[in-house]
Amino acid sequence: MKLFIYILKRILQTIPLLFIVSLISFFIIRLSPVDPLAELKLNPSVSKETLQRETERLGLDKPIIVQYGKWAKSFVKGDLGITSNGESVAVKLKERIPNTLLLTIIVIFLSWIVGVPLGIMAAVKWKTPFDRMLTVLTSIGMAIPSFFFAVLLLIFAVKTGWFPIGGLTSSNFLEMSFSEKVFDITKHLVLPVTVLFTISLAGLQRQMRGNLLDVLDSDYVKFARAKGVSEFKVIFKHALRNAVNPMITLLGFEFAGLLSGAALTEYVFQYPGLGRLILEAVLRSDINLVMASLMMGAIMLVVGNLIADILLIITDPRIRDNGGKQA
């Protein structure tokens, strides 16, 4: 029950937050000098009447505050509006969300399943050559800019011909059998996943290593060791449980990045995900689409944090009792 009230409170807190985020982003977009009709205005074959109609259709003839009001009203009702090309924003997003989720979930899954054990191993084998080697590799992984790495891999794909150059499916995808389809998508995913995985892995591994090292240094671990508890038990039963808390917070952020974390890589690999859609929308000042994606990002962040906090309450009795009192 306490947990339930706590969640409810948190949800109520997000409402003013979302309001402020939407207000700021709406005004920044609309006050920027980007004119959604600039291309049309420079097209000699577009008549004045057409321009006028477009202005009215996009609501550009009204003051910004009225435009915002209109947008906010339909947003609250759950209607995301239409893009500047007249397509439904919700449909556009729905087209892309599965692709982005496919990419990011694979990356998150892989990097956690590899990164956390690697971090533990590095901490346990602290200052051995194994640890040092991992440190060097992860430093490279953290230092290399994702778009640059992506471009390098693309050139690699062109030179060797082993991987397709960007995209998600081959042009004859429709004619393939199911297993061929799976293989085709896998082939397309290898390079973008490699880029995102390398970068995400580096951060995770170091975080895990650092956390565990801190804990291994604490008195109760020393005490457990002195008591003669087996090393396996010391690490997995005592140290790890305490080292994992910051990782849960991190998981919350990863959740927020599910839909927006891969924009640059998506762009370089021409991956048909949300990132590319939104980048193109921003360049065109396609207000409804940009707003929808920004709000989605904000909501994902809030939800991600909420999930992380709840998980923390479950895993950590200290927070549970404390959180309970406050709530």
Partner: peptide, 17 residues
Amino acid sequence: LIVGDVNNEVLKFEGGE
């Protein structure tokens, strides 16, 4: 093929796509 920019287009041509 719907490509995002000229560079990608060139790569795709060179890659035989």
